[in-house]
Each structure stands twice: as structure tokens, then as C-alpha cells.
Amino acid sequence: MRVALYWAPRLEDPLHRLGSAWLGRDTETGATVAQPDLPGLDIAEITADARSYGLHATLKPPFRLRTSWAAMRADAMALAARTRPFALPPLKLADHHGFLALLESEKCQPLQHLCDACVTGLDSHRAPPTDAEIARRNPARMTERQRELLHQYGYHYVLDQWWFHVTLTRRLTAEEREVVWPALEAHLGDVPAQPRRVTELCLFTQAAPGAPFLLAERLPLLG
């Protein structure tokens, strides 16, 4: 089993419903959701990877447990309990390295602090990656700072190398982007830009390699 700490929209947030419909799966229940049509394209294929991970933004990347679920959950609950809820900047649809994703419209320092706390404060529960897992990351293509982070935290896009993003597609060709972007924009409407607060830390689990991630628990921010 792997565990991850994510941001995910609250159940009453319309982004939960619209994002789940776009990806074709509700990570809260595991239920399959009907997806909108894309003219001339297979939306199920375009969203396959994102659907497997679920509608989310990564705070602490997926990891295998070195300790126990109970110990990790207790520390995650304690982290959430001392974290004050905060406003999330309006989100915007963007081309993110060829993927379509929702990004922050401006940098949110409380979000960065929460992310950093998850990465560093819960790292004692992370089992180290195998040599094969490290090789798949292709360290030779990383910067020196990213290799340092990979060695220390098992992943290179953390701390100062991290950015908030909610991935909604695979990498697209220019031709695919011309079809998918307006369809996704129309599907989401003004919902990404609506005001929302971060009031929960979400624990996701993956039962086995290749299995879809599911939202296991929402831990309230109580600080």
C-alpha cells in the first residue's frame, strides 16, 4: 500500500463534482462517473493517468509506509490540528508542461507552509525508495538541488521545487489542446476561480501498484 497527502476540494465545492465528472471517477466513493464528450477524441484515454490518481493537488507525494498506518495517521492528525484554515487563491486553467491543470493564480504562502510541513514532518513514516524507483525518476536529468531532494525525501518536486497543480489530462499535442482546452474551460466554467478555503488535509491510499488512489480520510485543520 502507498499513502499520499493531498489537497482535494470539499464535497460541497462544485469543483469536486465537475472535476470528478471530467476525470470519470469520484475519489471519495470510488464510483465511476460519466464523462463529457470530446469531439474526435477519447476523453477516457486522455484522462486515464489523472483519473487513477484522483482529483487532487499533491502535498506529500505517494510513499510506502516504514511505520504503521495508525502512527502515520496520528502524526497527520496532529499536523492538521495545529494548522489554521486559510484562503486558497483563485485557481486558473493552464498549460502546465503540456498537461492541462488548475494552478494557483498567485503564490499562497500558507499552502506552501502546509506542504512543507507534510513533506518534512511526516517523513519518518516513509519507507526509502528502491533503486529501481530512483532510476525511474532519471536523476541524471535533474538539477543538483532536485537530486538532493530526491535523496532526502524520495521525490524531487518538494519544498522550494514544489508547485500547486491539479492535473486534468495527460500531455497533449498542439492539435489535441485546441479541442480539449475549450471543452474543459466550458465544463468547469467559473468554478475554479470561486473563493474557497483550505480546511482539510486529505489522506489518500493506493491498495496495490496500479490500483486507483482513494480518499481515505479528511482531517480537519483546527489551528
Rank of each mutant, 00 (worst) to 15 (best):
T58Q: 07
T58G: 06
K60I: 08
P61D: 02
P61S: 01
P61Q: 02
P62E: 11
F63K: 06
F63M: 07
F63P: 06
F63E: 03
R64G: 12
R64M: 04
R64P: 06
R64T: 05
R64F: 00
L65D: 02
R66D: 13
R66M: 08
R66C: 03
T67I: 08
T67Q: 14
T67R: 15
T67L: 13
T67N: 14
T67C: 10
S68Y: 07
S68K: 07
W69C: 03
A70Q: 02
A70N: 02
A71Y: 08
M72V: 02
M72R: 00
M72A: 02
M72T: 03
R73M: 11
D75T: 03
D75Y: 08
D75K: 08
A76M: 00
M77K: 15
A78N: 13
A78I: 00
L79R: 13
L79E: 14
A80F: 04
A80Y: 04
A80N: 11
A81G: 06
A81H: 04
A81V: 00
T83M: 02
T83H: 01
P85H: 11
P85D: 13
P85L: 10
P85W: 06
F86M: 07
F86S: 10
F86D: 12
L88H: 04
P89K: 08
P89Y: 07
P89H: 07
P89G: 10
P90G: 06
P90H: 06
L91S: 12
L91M: 12
L91E: 13
L91F: 07
K92T: 14
K92L: 15
K92H: 15
K92S: 13
L93D: 04
L93A: 05
L93W: 01
A94R: 12
A94C: 08
A94Y: 09
D95Q: 09
H96W: 14
H96E: 14
G98M: 11
G98E: 09
G98W: 06
F99E: 02
F99L: 05
F99R: 04
A101Y: 06
A101G: 14
A101F: 02
L102H: 03
L102D: 05
L103P: 08
L103S: 05
L103V: 01
L103T: 00
E104R: 12
E104I: 00
E104M: 10
E104W: 13
S105T: 13
S105N: 13
E106W: 04
E106Y: 04
E106K: 09
E106S: 11
K107L: 10
C108E: 15
C108S: 15
Q109W: 09
P110T: 05
L111C: 04
L111D: 09
L111Q: 10
Q112N: 10
